[in-house]
């Protein structure tokens, strides 16, 4: 197995684990962490797949850098909302009964 394929497969596995976490986990903090695992998986695929004969391609690295900034912003927003929800309700889970 070549290096790029190894990176990409690990990335896909991480992504799948992350998606499963975001969808299945009730605890909000762990869901935010799962989202970060998911994002890292996608970044790993982006950087890992795009090597040509072992030489790294700079364009996806720039993309991942942008992606990390976006992920940090999203995490911050999610944490702020989770914190607010905790202050208001004392719970760290979304209840199921509020979708009418």
């Amino acid at each position: 197995m070549t290096g790029e394929l190894l990176f990409a497969s690990v990335g896909v596995i991480l992504f799948a684990l992350g998606v499963a976490g975001v969808l299945l986990i009730g605890h909000l903090l762990r869901r935010v962490l799962a989202f970060n695992v998911m994002g890292s998986g996608a970044f790993l695929v982006l950087v890992g797949l795009a090597q040509r004969n072992g030489i790294a391609d700079p364009v996806p690295q720039a993309m991942v850098l942008t992606g990390i900034v976006v992920a940090v912003a999203a995490t911050a927003l999610a944490l702020a909302l989770v914190r607010r929800l905790y202050v208001l309700t004392g719970k760290l889970e979304l209840s199921q009964d509020d979708d009418e």
């Binding site: 990409a8 990335g11 896909v12 992504f15 992350g18 998606v19 975001v22 969808l23 909000l28 869901r31 989202f35 998911m38 994002g39 998986g41 996608a42 970044f43 695929v45 982006l46 890992g48 797949l49 795009a50 364009v59 996806p60 993309m63 992606g67 999203a74 927003l77 999610a78 909302l81 989770v82 929800l85 979304l94 509020d98």
Partner: peptide, 25 residues
């Protein structure tokens, strides 16, 4: 509802990003 929306939109754009990564690869 904002949190629910946030998680939905993040998973959506995550899937989109993985697709973009595969296309670039």
């Amino acid at each position: 509802s904002a949190l629910r929306y946030l998680f939905a939109t993040l998973v959506g754009s995550g899937a989109y990003l993985l697709g973009v990564a595969l296309i670039y690869g």
